[in-house]
Amino acid sequence: NLRWTSEAKTKLKNIPFFARSQAKARIEQLARQAEQDIVTPELVEQARLEFG
């Protein structure tokens, strides 16, 4: 299971509600691909840039 830093959680809250669950799934996918067990603000930002 993935842990989220408080900064990453804050960044996730800045994503519009309607896109948040999809973004969260993508962020967690990116973390797993990078073999990380902690979601960082950088991963959230990477996903945000993908979504535009």
Rank of each mutant, 00 (worst) to 15 (best):
P16Q: 03
V39R: 00
E50Y: 07
Q22M: 11
D37Y: 13
A8L: 01
E45D: 13
Q33L: 12
N1F: 10
A23V: 15
G52Q: 14
T5N: 05
I38F: 10
K11A: 15
T40K: 03
Q22P: 03
A25Y: 07
I38A: 04
I38N: 04
A47F: 15
L49M: 10
L12G: 01
F18D: 04
T5Q: 04
E45K: 05
S6G: 07
T5I: 03
L2A: 03
A19C: 15
V39I: 12
S6K: 14
I15E: 02
F51V: 07
E50P: 05
V44I: 06
F17E: 15
E42D: 12
S6A: 14
E45I: 06
R20V: 04
A8C: 03
K9S: 09
D37A: 10
D37H: 13
K9R: 10
A47P: 01
L43R: 02
F51D: 04
A34C: 09
I15L: 08
E35M: 14
E42V: 05
Q36M: 14
E28H: 03
S21M: 12
A47E: 05
Q46D: 04
E35D: 12
E50K: 07
I38Y: 09
A8D: 01
R20E: 03
R26W: 12
F18C: 15
E7K: 09
Q33H: 09
P16V: 03
L12Q: 01
A19R: 11
L12P: 01
I27E: 00
S21I: 13
Q36W: 07
K13M: 14
W4Y: 02
W4R: 00
R48P: 02
N14T: 13
E42Q: 09
Q46N: 05
Q46P: 01
I15T: 02
V44C: 03
K9Q: 10
Q29A: 11
A34I: 11
A19Q: 14
E35K: 14
F18M: 07
R48K: 09
S21R: 12
L49F: 09
I15C: 05
E50W: 07
R48M: 15
V44A: 02
T5M: 07
R26H: 11
W4H: 00
T5W: 01
L30R: 04
R26F: 13
V44M: 05
R32I: 11
I15W: 14
F51H: 07
E45N: 06
L2E: 01
F18K: 09
